[in-house]
């Protein structure tokens, strides 16, 4: 008991130190860097593809509006590549990367036999779990920003920049466009917090990192498929991926907040439910590895 008390008194700095070391461990992993590299490559591929396709002056996406959202506007304004890249990666690449990192968070440590050493340090399980979740959230943000920044760089290189037309047909300046792009990146990162919490919960259930990652990504795919089945439309508003593409509503003028707030509320709900479930599991679990 007294040991725990000491731990709590020394807490703020200790937690920060724990968080910093967790961040370093996560971002120094080759696996994490490879994931970020793949994410950064997506906008490059999309940008080059659009550039080649429209080299002869034809409209992107065949002019019929196919392909990821915003793709037909990319040729006129490179900033739209940010939105296109986020729309292209959000359904699968981004959450998959988050699922890998989140699934690995606890189960990976258990798998490698390092979890008990982490718990020997006077941090407490709740705090360790919170730190793990904070690290995964940080990864969500970094992954989204990697996509956005890579898209912006490619967009600036291959296409003109300047004032842009919102999807409502009104014009906004480039500075406001950039601000909206940043806001969209933040919303996309926030959209991933639900998956992150789900992955963390799965991660506390097993001692195998691979199993946790596979389960999280499998759940992600299952939910995406169920979200496409019209007969289940009554359940759709409760799927964490249902409102993901609502980030595009930030490009309307005036901004249409209804789905955006629904999305953020839903992510908060998932984070609360699965976060507390992960806590309930992790703090009561026998750590044998």
């Amino acid at each position: 008991m007294s040991q725990a008390e000491t731990a709590r008194r020394a807490s703020p700095l200790w937690t920060l130190g724990l968080f910093r070391s967790e961040l370093l461990t996560t971002f120094r992993r080759w696996r994490t860097l490879a994931l970020l590299g793949v994410l950064a490559a997506v906008p490059v591929l999309v940008g080059i593809a659009v550039r080649i396709e429209t080299g002869d002056g034809s409209a992107a996406g065949g002019g019929g509006g196919e392909g990821p959202a915003f793709i037909s506007q990319v040729t006129n304004n490179g900033l739209f590549l940010v939105f296109t890249a986020l729309a292209a990666t959000l359904p699968f690449f981004l959450p998959m990367a988050v699922g890998v990192v989140a699934g690995d968070a606890v189960a990976g440590e258990a798998n490698a036999g390092t979890l008990r050493y982490l718990l020997v340090a006077p941090a407490g399980r709740s705090r360790l779990l919170l730190t793990k979740y904070a690290t995964v959230i940080a990864f969500c943000l970094v992954a989204t920003l990697v996509v956005a920044v890579s898209a912006l760089a490619v967009g600036a290189l291959l296409f003109p920049l300047g004032d842009l037309t919102t999807i409502s047909g009104t014009r906004i300046g480039f500075a406001e466009g950039l601000a909206r792009a940043l806001l969209i990146a933040l919303v996309v990162a926030a959209s991933l917090t639900g998956v992150a919490a789900l992955g963390l919960f799965v991660s506390t259930l097993t001692n195998s990192g691979i199993a946790a990652m596979a389960t999280t990504v499998g759940l992600l795919i299952t939910v995406q498929i169920l979200d496409q089945i019209p007969q289940l439309s009554a359940l759709h508003p409760y799927f964490f991926s249902h409102y993901w593409l609502s980030f595009a509503d930030l490009m309307r003028e005036p901004v249409y907040w209804e789905d955006l707030t629904k999305n953020l509320g839903l992510q908060a709900l998932y984070a609360a439910v699965f976060g507390s479930a992960a806590w309930a599991r992790f703090t009561a679990k026998d750590i044998t590895a």
Binding site: G64, G65, A69, G169
Partner: peptide, 27 residues
């Protein structure tokens, strides 16, 4: 304006002009 997924169709009447803008196809 008709709100669509990540796109919008706007019909704008301003003075003597009538514009239709389909953001999905950018037409």
């Amino acid at each position: 304006s008709l709100l669509e997924d990540a796109a919008e169709y706007s019909l704008i009447h301003n003075g003597k002009d009538v514009w239709g803008y389909d953001s999905r196809s950018n037409e």
